[in-house]
Design a protein around this nucleic acid. Structure first.
Length: 1134
RNA sequence: GGGCGCGUAGCUCAACGGCUAGAGCAUUCGCCUUACACGCGAAGGGUUCUCGGUUCGAAUCCGAGCGCGCCCACCA
């Protein structure tokens, strides 16, 4: 039998144990067992970590919690499946790689070309996918690694393709306009996280727009504009108009930081509450030079000017506002929204390089030709000058505001109108389906509350903690359609092709005819999936989306042929003369021979390039619960895919952080219900429970982030403390709160001790560790990566790098060591008293056992129940607390100490000892899998008779990871005898504590055996403990009768009785006892006063529960008795 | 701007209307008691952020304020 080493060194065991788990295939789930009804399912789909970099402690927390749930349920007999994988994280990964290439190889994406660049990102992904998988394994995560997926692998790509096709076919994907963050230098669109805000010293320009009356229909004709004079405005009741020159043209003044965009203005907006709004209703303004006549619209988005701009607390905007807002829908996101609300024209006045242009949507140039071709900066100066020249520039005031800049080129971002793809998530089949998925108890809006009595929801999705249900709910109620196209190269390319009609055709009848033609072509050529959808884009253009990439290639063959024919014969296909059959590829000629009409229809279109954009990362993430299981391919993997979906969709729980409730949880819910419900939105929920855990912050309360460099690699913790210590501490930290702090220490590379880092404040004002650290233990220096932004170079390459750690993990490490020692000791005892032994003997019954044995079993029962409750409610800290107390406080501090004198001669006690450790190992295994499995290797060979009612069946594989969870019989779990022994033993512990305090107070040598003089009333208690009091309190003997007036002893007051300790030492100092008694009595008397006051309160006796009142009376009586005893002893001593 | 959370011992956190407000670490004292010094035994340490209210009873519920943090939106 292998003996345990003196100390537990995680690194000596973790790799070997992982290998044993892997070889046993214990983590591989068989969905067939579930489908056939042989086992109940339990599954978790991992939130796929981004392949942007290594995992940090936030991931460690997330995955530890999932592993605890999976391991516990696996032991409980569920067919447990944890689906692992990673996310391609479009924008984040692309920008990390792009930056790296630029820095290290001076390579630009645009110069490399799409294919070469994507290949480099792919290589990065391969590297980090491997790193991440390695980290998960080192943490002990029992994922089903055979099934590991990646959001861009073939299986997931197929799901993305199918999902896109179905939504497109069902009319839920449409083309819309959107303002993107445009970088005019690199001429690319940027994601929000690539935009950095910079404060710039700009100006507010106050421009006057002449008011006009617009006489005829149609816009933009100067002839239709009649100027309005101030006197006319005064007649309309415009405040202040009468103080202006009566016969001169009136104006309104807009305030703007971007005068050059006035060229694209299509309205002026005023707040409907503004006192001037009434008089202006129905009037227009005319843009100087351009001559465009635009309406004045009322919108409460407009900030009204402050009455007293210098007063404190006035909104910055109100200080500068005039109450008139120029509306430029094509060049400002808010204006775009206002434009939508008032159905305004959208006029883009810029080219992609941000110069003023009349080639991109602006046609009514009027007299504004002088601006065309200017850069936006020059245009601004010119506009201001022209307004000034016409007396229309009212003022310029300096204004500091933040403007988005490209973090690559540094150029100011230009909001740029572009065509994008949207998913119509506001459709009832999506949004409403997600809301219905919620368990009715957690719905909180008024309508939902009213519906609670007659629940209309058909789902059971439950959030833990409950408050996050509201986040989910309100997000959906304010939902807008989801823009899914991204101007990137790394991602799922949008499977839509534009087809242009040759010659003078018109696409009126295109959708049906063209759809049929393509489907025929595909069918004739044996495509597995000939489904295709055509949507009209413009009079001569259509979009087509085919359901498979196979279809794309087949269509490519046809298009190449058509293209070639067209270049040879310019009259074709318009003239519809027969093409040359000899040059036709097989695919084309088959089609030609079978259906010439359809052939001609398809040949009258020319395919242009595939949409260059890729899908938003969250599109593939939203499919993760089904794409990982092979959807839509139910036949694949030998039918395994079908079984997987059947067995594990819905999964049991999603564990994640709250920041992605909206981005991810919502979309998974919508998609799962849509695609698994045949497009009606009635499919199953993706998961039954959603558990939202805390975010880990550093010691300063800052979120751990890559850019701040304060993320901690779990492998660092594993090397300083071990995987189990990390897991235990993370589990112990997981309360229902939303943030937890993790003060970071430096782990010295020289002496392997840790210390608090010296900290500095960096340029951004964050408190981070200083780059160079000196170890207080060995005085050597090291370089800390903590606080170093990702990608930054080490300040000093020669000095060794320190790892990061945290003293918080000491608790977990100490706990694992404690378990190790307790196991070592248990095995030593078993070895010395019968060795391996056998489990065949008759069961040990409660009635066969001593008090402390029965008490140990009572603790096991209580802990098991507490742990099971904690798991059900995702209260991980309670789980950790329960195993901590069971092992340390109950098993080690009391039980092991108590049985030392008797266990070697009592087979019944050995049986309890063995069962207790076995139970602890099983209960703890999900939290600390490595150390428990390591102990099991040695401990598994020791057997003793079973304990009646506590079932601990052996593991089929011999591995603890597949051992059954401890099972308590009903008799044992609700045994009155166990409940009683818990109370009895509490009294024993109380007595031992009291004696220990007295000993410590008198500074009695720890090893000295003393004599206890006990009054007859306590004889039963001491006898009932069967020697445990003597063992634990260090007593030589217990004698009846307390000799009165013995000043060479010390009195112990317990339950209102006086006990005396004698034979303490040679000379006892009565003053010590006197002080202790005096202080103790004073404290008790204070407590007595509180209790008496409570009882004296007439409301208390009347309204509080009778049981509680009685308890108060009992406590009071006991305390009074104790004080009495103390006073009597004090008198003896004086 | 919207939403959410937090403020309890020196530090990190429990306690979710009712025992003397607890634990781990840190501190002090005594012990290398043959499982464990990553340990054992004992001790000190709290105006539960402030003010008001509800209640027989408030760290806990309600209101107001102060401070801190997170998420989302936005910044003419």
């Amino acid at each position: 039998m292998p003996a345990l080493d003196k100390n537990y060194k995680p690194a000596d065991h973790e790799p070997r144990i992982w290998k044993r788990w892997e070889d046993s295939r214990a983590f591989h789930a068989d969905p067939a067992k579930v489908v056939s009804g042989k086992a109940k399912p339990y599954s978790i789909i991992i939130p796929p970590p981004n392949v942007t970099g290594r995992l940090h402690l936030g991931h460690a927390l997330n995955n530890t919690l999932q592993d605890i749930l999976i391991r516990a349920h696996r032991m409980m007999g569920f067919e447990a499946m944890w689906m692992p994988g990673t996310d391609h994280a479009g924008i984040a990964t692309q920008s990390v790689v792009e930056k790296r290439l630029l820095q290290e190889e001076n390579l630009k994406r645009s110069a490399m070309g799409r294919e070469a660049f994507v290949a480099r990102v792919q290589a990065w992904k391969d590297e980090y996918e491997e790193t991440i998988t390695g980290q998960l394994k080192a943490m002990g995560c029992s994922c089903d690694f055979d099934r590991q997926r990646f959001t861009m692998d073939d299986i997931c790509a197929k799901a993305v393709r199918e999902a896109f096709f179905r939504l497109f076919r069902d009319g839920l994907i449409y083309r819309g306009k959107r303002l993107v963050n445009w970088d005019p230098i690199t001429q690319t669109a940027l994601a929000d996280d690539e935009v950095v805000n910079e404060e710039i010293e700009g100006s507010f320009y106050y421009l006057r727009y002449p008011l006009v009356r617009h006489q005829a229909s149609g816009t933009g004709h100067q002839a239709n504009a009649v100027p309005i004079t101030w006197s006319e405005l005064a007649r309309l009741g415009y405040p202040g108009a009468s103080s202006q020159p009566a016969d001169q043209a009136a104006w309104v003044t807009v305030a703007t930081t971007r005068p050059e965009t006035y060229l694209g203005d299509t309205a002026v907006a005023i707040n409907p509450k503004d006192p001037r709004a009434n008089a202006l209703r129905g009037l227009h303004v005319q843009l100087p030079l351009v001559g465009r006549i635009i309406p004045i619209v009322e919108d409460d988005y407009v900030v009204m000017p402050a009455k007293d701009p210098d007063a404190e607390g006035v909104d910055a905007k109100a200080k500068f506002a005039t109450g008139f807002l120029k509306v430029t829908p094509a060049h400002d996101p808010n204006d775009y929204d206002i434009g939508n609300r008032h159905k305004l024209a959208v006029i883009n006045v810029m080219a992609p390089d941000a110069s003023i242009s009349d080639k991109h949507g602006w046609t009514d140039i009027g007299d504004a030709h002088l601006f065309v071709g200017l850069s936006r900066e020059d245009a601004r100066k010119k506009v201001v000058a022209e307004f000034k020249a016409r007396g229309l520039l009212e003022n310029i005031r300096p204004y500091t505001h933040s403007v988005g800049h490209s973090d690559r080129s540094g150029a100011a971002i230009e909001p740029y109108l572009s065509d994008q793809w949207y998913v119509k998530v506001t459709d009832d089949k999506l949004r409403a389906a997600a809301l219905r998925a919620m368990t009715p108890e957690q719905r909180n809006t008024p309508t939902a509350r009213a519906a609670r009595s007659t629940p209309q929801g058909d789902g059971s999705m439950t959030f833990y903690p409950e408050r996050y249900a509201r986040t989910f709910e309100t997000w959906h109620e304010n939902l807008r359609d989801w823009c899914i196209s991204r101007q990137l190269w790394w991602g799922h390319r949008i499977p839509v092709w534009t087809y242009i009609q040759w010659g003078g055709g018109h696409t009126n009848s295109a959708p049906t005819e063209l759809t049929q033609a393509i489907e025929k072509y595909l069918r004739i050529n044996g495509a597995n999936d000939p489904r295709v959808t055509v949507v009209i884009k413009s009079p001569k253009e259509v979009f087509i989306c085919a359901a498979s990439s196979e279809a794309d290639s087949l269509l490519g063959i046809f298009d190449d042929y058509v293209d070639k024919m067209h270049s040879q014969r310019s009259d074709w296909p318009a003239g519809s003369a027969a093409p040359e059959p000899t040059e036709m590829p097989n695919e084309v000629s088959r089609f030609h021979n079978a259906d010439i009409a359809s052939f001609n229809t398809l040949a009258s279109y020319r395919r242009v390039e595939q949409d260059p954009d890729v899908l938003d990362t969250w599109f593939s993430s939203a499919l993760w619960p089904i794409s990982t299981m092979g959807w839509p391919d139910t036949k694949g993997n030998g039918g395994d895919f079908e079984a997987l979906l059947k067995a594990y969709n819905s999964s049991n729980v999603l564990c994640t952080a709250r920041e992605i409730i909206t981005l991810w949880v919502s979309r998974m819910t919508m998609f799962n219900r849509y695609f698994m419900g045949e497009g009606a939105g009635h499919g199953p929920v993706p998961f039954h429970d959603v558990f939202i855990h805390a975010m880990i912050q550093d010691g300063e309360g800052q979120k751990m982030s890559k850019s701040l460099g304060n993320g901690v690699d779990p492998l660092d913790i594993i090397s300083s403390h071990g995987a189990d210590a990390m897991r235990f501490t993370l589990c112990d930290m997981t309360t229902q709160t939303q943030d937890v702090r993790m003060p970071v220490d430096i782990f010295c590379p020289h002496c392997a001790k840790s210390f608090e880092p010296r900290k500095i404040t960096n340029q951004s004002g964050y408190v981070v560790a200083a780059p160079t650290q000196t170890c207080p233990h060995c005085s050597k220096s090291s370089v800390s990566s903590y606080g170093l932004a990702s990608g930054s170079a080490k300040p000093d390459a020669k000095t060794p790098s320190a790892k990061n750690t945290s003293s918080k993990f000491d608790k977990g490490r100490n706990y694992c060591t404690k378990l190790w020692n307790a196991a070592k000791f248990t095995m030593m005892i078993l070895e010395e008293s019968g060795g391996a032994g056998s489990a065949d003997g008759p069961s040990v019954h409660l009635s066969d056992l001593s008090q402390v044995d029965r008490w140990m079993i009572a603790r096991i029962v209580a802990a098991t129940q507490r742990i099971e409750d904690s798991l059900k409610n995702y209260e991980f800290n309670n789980y950790a607390q329960a195993v901590y107390e069971l092992l340390w406080w109950d098993f080690c501090d009391w039980y092991l100490e108590a049985i030392k004198p008797t266990v070697r001669t009592s087979p019944a006690q050995q049986a309890v000892l063995r069962a207790a450790l076995d139970t602890i190992l099983r209960l703890l295994h999900p939290v600390a899998p490595y150390v428990t499995e390591t102990i099991q290797e040695a401990f598994g060979g020791y057997l003793r008779a079973p304990v009646q009612g506590l079932a601990l069946p052996p593991s089929q594989t011999g591995l603890l990871c597949s051992a059954p969870w401890p099972h308590l019989s009903l008799d044992l779990a609700s045994s009155p005898a166990l409940k009683a022994v818990d109370a009895e033993f509490s009294r024993v512990k109380g007595l031992v504590d009291a004696i220990r305090q007295a000993r410590s107070g008198q500074a009695v040598e720890p090893r000295r055996k003393v004599t206890l003089h006990s009054p007859p009333e306590l004889a039963d208690l001491i006898r009932g403990a069967q020697g445990v009091v003597e063992t634990l309190a260090g007593l030589e003997k217990v004698v009846a009768e307390a000799p009165a007036g013995n000043t060479q002893g010390a009195v112990v007051v317990f339950e209102g009785r006086e006990l005396l300790l004698s034979n303490l030492k040679d000379a006892v100092d009565p003053a010590v006892e006197r002080t202790a008694l005096t202080e103790g009595a004073a404290k008790l008397e204070k407590e007595i006063a509180v209790l008496e006051a409570r009882l004296a309160n007439p409301g208390y006796a009347d309204k509080a529960p009778a049981k509680m009142v009685q308890e108060t009376r009992d406590t009071l009586a006991r305390k009074q008795a104790e004080v009495g005893a103390m006073r009597r002893r004090l008198e003896e001593l004086s």
